[in-house]
């Protein structure tokens, strides 16, 4: 672990190398918000100064320049000197870093089938949960990660085209709106960062993954369950089997790069389906749904 002053100096100078699952991110920033959030969330993933001669992504978070930004300060994301998207208010600098990193991975990591899905693991077996925004996926993921499951990923499943296994990408879980207080109340000792209000996704706050999830990030996991959650307020919690062909269609429909990786992607997706129990989860009450998922995994409800 490195001292805070050292972290700050590296962020401002040659860049801070962070191991994010299979990727090394070299991050530069003068922004206090970035410095505080990185120190909070990524302290276990920092690489020694000479430990990462090659970085996958060279990212800079900087204040936008220009007269207008004097009274309306903004943060801009740069990948190797180029800015692929519009700036956001300075207060959203940290979510901008996380979203920008998603973009970097989605654009470049074509040695994986990338799926918009959460991934958790128990006893060496992985649960993959693709979900639309608003499906309750992040809330379920946070609650599972804080009650004995290992977190591999919150919204970015990496299915290795080489091994057919899921590769961990441990990053803070992004909690939205009501989920922030819900998780805070249930897990008072969980580490949740400051909330960013009025983002395009509403209020967002990030939950730090448990240490054990971070420390085991280089362990891959074979797929065992593929669950599509759907939030239904006031409904009843139900797990129902899903037809495999439909599960395959839904899975590739949630992929970021299925059309790019072509045949290899189809094979990987079909193998995942082959090895998994495919289910849909109607989710209304967090405890009830957690009980259902735990029971499927053969553990205490």
């Amino acid at each position: 672990m490195i001292a805070h002053e050292d972290l700050k100096a590296r962020l401002r100078d040659a860049g801070l190398a962070i191991q994010v699952g299979p990727f090394v991110v070299r991050l530069r920033s003068q922004l206090d918000r970035i410095e505080r959030s990185v120190a909070l969330f990524y302290d276990r993933q920092l690489l020694p100064v000479d430990g990462a001669p090659f970085a996958d992504f060279h990212v800079t978070l900087a204040r936008s320049s220009g007269l207008r930004t004097v009274w309306r300060p903004q943060a801009r994301f740069f990948l190797d000197g180029r800015s692929p998207f519009r700036p956001l208010p300075l207060a959203h600098a940290y979510p901008l870093f996380e979203w920008g990193l998603n973009w970097c991975i989605a654009q470049h990591a074509h040695d994986y089938l990338m799926v918009h899905a959460a991934v958790l693991e128990r006893d060496g077996r992985a649960l993959v949960m693709p979900g639309e925004p608003g499906s309750g996926k992040s809330t379920l993921t946070a609650a599972l990660a804080l009650s004995g499951w290992r977190l591999l990923s919150d919204e970015f499943a990496l299915l290795s085209l080489e091994t057919g296994k899921l590769v961990a990408l441990p990053r803070p879980v992004s909690l939205k709106n009501a989920a922030i207080d819900l998780i805070r109340e249930r897990h008072p000792r969980a580490i949740i960062g400051p909330a960013s209000h009025d983002t395009s996704k509403g209020t967002v706050a990030h939950l730090k993954p448990p240490d054990s999830s971070i420390d085991r990030m280089h362990q891959q996991a074979g797929p065992a369950w593929l669950v599509f959650p759907r939030f239904s307020a006031g409904g009843s919690d139900r797990l129902q089997p899903l037809d495999r062909a439909e599960a395959l269609l839904k899975l590739v429909g949630s992929s970021f790069n299925y059309s790019v990786v072509g045949g290899a992607g189809f094979e990987a997706a079909a193998n995942l389906i082959e090895q998994s129990e495919c289910l849909t989860l109607e989710y209304a009450d967090l405890d009830a749904s957690l009980g259902l998922l735990n029971a499927v995994a053969g553990g205490p409800a």
């Binding site: 090394v24 090659f54 040695d111 059309s259 790019v260 990786v261 072509g262």
Partner: peptide, 16 residues
């Protein structure tokens, strides 16, 4: 392997 992964990804994209 680290740089090879990026070259490979670019080739996958080009082939596509």
């Amino acid at each position: 392997p680290a740089p090879r992964r990026h070259l490979h990804a670019a080739r996958v994209l080009a082939d596509r």
